[in-house]
């Protein structure tokens, strides 16, 4: 069962790369922002269905939650649009390496300070080595 879980996680990541490559193609015909719109629009429909049938949480919490915790959607738009714009210029590989590096380094900073309600998790020697290797990777792949 653990093995299957690892395979699912691998496939999940693979899905993101496929998504980036396909949306880059769609972006060429309908426009990049329009492609982002399509993704979020279609995602809203899919998630609404999933929510109707499987939602066990509390959607009304949206109204009580601190306003900053509602900003995930806008941030997601920046992420997706950057991928759709970048892939036709530099390819899927570099795009994914850059996204991952931005993501990993920023997560370390966010967790180091415990920002945005995350659990505090200090930067240590291992994490610094990790950043160093990522920079090497980015230099090599470019």
């Amino acid at each position: 069962m653990r093995f299957i879980s690892y395979m699912l996680a691998l496939l999940a990541g693979a899905a993101l790369s496929f998504e980036g490559a396909i949306y880059a193609e769609l972006g060429k015909t309908i426009g990049q922002i329009e492609t982002s719109f399509y993704n979020f629009f279609m995602g809203s429909i899919i998630m609404s269905l999933l929510w109707l049938f499987f939602g066990k949480g509390k959607i009304s919490y949206t109204l009580e939650a601190p306003k900053w915790s509602l900003l995930g959607g806008v941030l997601g738009v920046i992420y997706l649009t950057s991928i759709v714009v970048s892939v036709p210029f530099v390819g899927v590989g570099i795009t994914m390496v850059a996204v991952i590096i931005g993501q990993l380094v920023m997560s370390m900073i966010i967790e180091h300070f415990g920002w945005l309600g995350s659990q505090k998790n200090k930067i240590n020697k291992e994490k610094l080595f990790a950043v160093l290797s990522m920079i090497m990777a980015l230099i090599l792949i470019n």
Partner: peptide, 27 residues
């Protein structure tokens, strides 16, 4: 530009992580 996309994505996961503790993943 893409590095910035990654940065916003990590901010999104922290924010969504906080939100989902009270609201649920699908929500």
């Amino acid at each position: 530009f893409t590095l910035i996309g990654g940065i916003t994505l990590s901010a999104q996961s922290s924010i969504n992580g906080t939100f989902s503790r009270k609201a649920g993943t699908i929500e």
